[in-house]
Design a protein around this nucleic acid. Structure first.
Lengths: 338, 338
DNA sequence: AACGTTACTGGAAACGTTTTCATAAACTGA
DNA sequence: TCAGTTTATGAAAACGTTTCCAGTAACGTT
């Protein structure tokens, strides 16, 4: 049995198709009595309007794209889930796309939008430092960058962002270690782009060092790629180069946990021989052994705000905004005072 | 500047719209010369066919739904990523939907499909034990259940599945413990439905016990919900009820890790006081401390097979199939011989 | 040379909506 | 009572494709 269409419903309810359409779209200019009759028929026959036709006619979809850059990352995975829930609650669908290898992330976003006729796009990760006004305008739909470092220089109204103050948070993580007597503090960071999160967090680390008159040591720097494995490898290299380290700041929990393995394999104990502080506060952090001291990012809040801003813009209630969420240090058991 | 449509391209290339359509859809009956000319124009003006119109006309989309039941779960998160990549490579989009609270999972699937006009649906988690032929047929699109226990009784051709032998795997995990001298083995399982994964894995556990003439003890059973927190709580309860336990089998790694925390808090050591074996082999497992002995599920392979089957069916090359992937025990450091 | 095939091609009718426009009915106020 | 307004409705024209159908040109076959 073929699906009913709006014409069938109209006939069944004894009205014109436009009336049915008006009922579906909650236009106010339908007599209550008529509306009820139509609604009844719709319910009775379980009629679902054809989305493709609506999309075509309105020349837009109800789809919001989520673009994820980089390897699998529990932090992002968690965000996606929360974003989707909120989006779906507001009547939008979440179309995801992972790890695109376009030369520029913005090009990937553009292609994704055009092809899928997305109504908005949310970017998780990716480097957008070189972004120009023109490029964003070319997108043609609202864009939100969540948990991604963004170019400050830009006109405030071209896109939204919801982030944390990465530099400040990294600085406070480093200070946390300094306050506990550490002077030889390694860092496992990431990336090499100008505006990458890694670079920004490294800047916070350096700032803390400088303000406390601690000389920075090139041997204390290592780079990973937000995975356990790369965190592990980075720590191994760090341990080779610098055996006097008393603490390590890893700019993501997964790398911190990877690092912990390398530390353990060296026969060293956390926190007795070496203190470790992470970043993100993924759910694993609290259950790691030893429980990981880390910078808490309010994932849920970030995700909800992201979805909320998107819905707000799409429903034309509000305009772009830039939100910065506070972070806090969660002290657990992976750091000690020396 | 409004987007070009197929008519514009036709005019520009000096051909009819149907010819352009034929070129786009790679029909063979177009003269090479003509095809080339059209392709040139398309490339030159960067024309992208309107998806909504195609969908409407063909009365189908290129969207595949991924339905995820339950709370955030790193195992599923990983699968989603791999599935999306493969799907997208074959020209399909992945539309996700989390944690639906329909009375029956099959109803959620149905609604999701109808509303989004999905071309296929992949279910991660959820209980489909009561499924009837009629219900699956009502769906109207190919359905694949991945990593979800499925009703064996069904006609083989109504849906696909890609799973592991949960009972066997759980049995071997338990045997692994038994072989190492354990007799007082607790289990942290899940759910209470007849065909839930938890029940099946529990069955494997019991079978191993029986085959080894070990009496089962009701105090050795506890239930969680695939989260760190519930694993932790379950273990706490277990430790209350049964302080003679020498080993615990948690039917998911996250619950095993949660349990480890409870064990540590009691002042007990893994594996010296109590051995722990998990299930899944999520990436956390290898980096946990102590590294978690667990049942390895080939996530990547399962995800790829899932996507591959879906694409195969949609592209009309093949029909439904049921794949069972092998698991293996990964021995790390959380179990010891007593 | 006349015919049937085959290989291409274009016109036009769908697909199921939304929205504009026209119109009928019901109300308003003098 | 009647023009003017408001309210409620339906008919029909899009939206941008795909595909059926008909038609032309080129080609072999007799």
């Amino acid at each position: 049995m073929r699906n009913l269409n709006i014409k069938d419903i109209a006939k069944l309810a004894g009205v014109g198709v436009s009336t049915v359409s008006r009922v579906i779209n909650q236009h106010s200019d339908v007599k209550d009595e008529t509306r009820e009759r139509v609604l009844e028929v719709i319910a009775k026959y379980n009629y679902i309007p054809n989305n493709s036709a609506r999309n075509l006619k309105r020349s837009e979809t109800m789809d919001v794209g989520i673009l994820i850059k980089g390897m699998y990352n529990p932090f992002f995975a968690h965000m996606i889930e929360s974003i989707e829930k909120k989006l779906s609650y507001a009547g939008y669908s979440a179309v995801i796309h992972y790890n695109i290898e376009a030369t520029k992330d913005i090009d990937a976003a553009f292609e994704f939008i055009m092809e899928k006729k997305l109504k908005g796009i949310i970017c998780l990760g990716g480097d957008f430092d070189q972004l120009t006004d023109k490029e964003i305008e070319r997108l043609g739909v609202p864009m939100i960058m969540a948990s991604t470092e963004i170019p400050e220089l830009l006109n405030k109204n071209l896109f939204s962002s919801v982030i944390i103050d990465n530099e400040e948070a990294a600085k406070s993580a480093t200070e946390f270690l300094i306050e506990r007597g550490h002077r030889k503090i390694g860092i496992i960071t990431s990336g090499d782009q100008d505006m990458s999160i890694g670079t920004i967090r490294t800047r916070g680390y350096i700032k803390a060092l400088e303000e406390n008159k601690i000389e920075k040591n090139d041997n204390y720097f290592e780079v990973g790629a937000y995975t356990f494995e790369t965190g592990y490898e980075a720590m191994k290299r760090l341990l080779e180069k610098a055996d006097d380290l008393t603490a390590v700041f890893a700019i993501s929990d997964v790398m911190a946990i990877g690092a912990a393995k390398a530390i353990g394999e060296k026969g060293l104990n956390i926190p007795n021989d070496i203190s470790v502080i992470g970043f993100d506060d993924i759910d694993y952090a609290a259950f790691f052994n030893p429980a990981l001291t880390t910078i808490h990012q309010p994932v849920e809040e970030i995700a909800f705000a992201t979805a909320e801003i998107m819905v707000g813009i799409l429903d034309e209630r509000q305009s772009h905004q830039h939100m910065v969420f506070p972070t806090e240090i969660i002290e657990r058991s992976s750091c000690k005072t020396i």
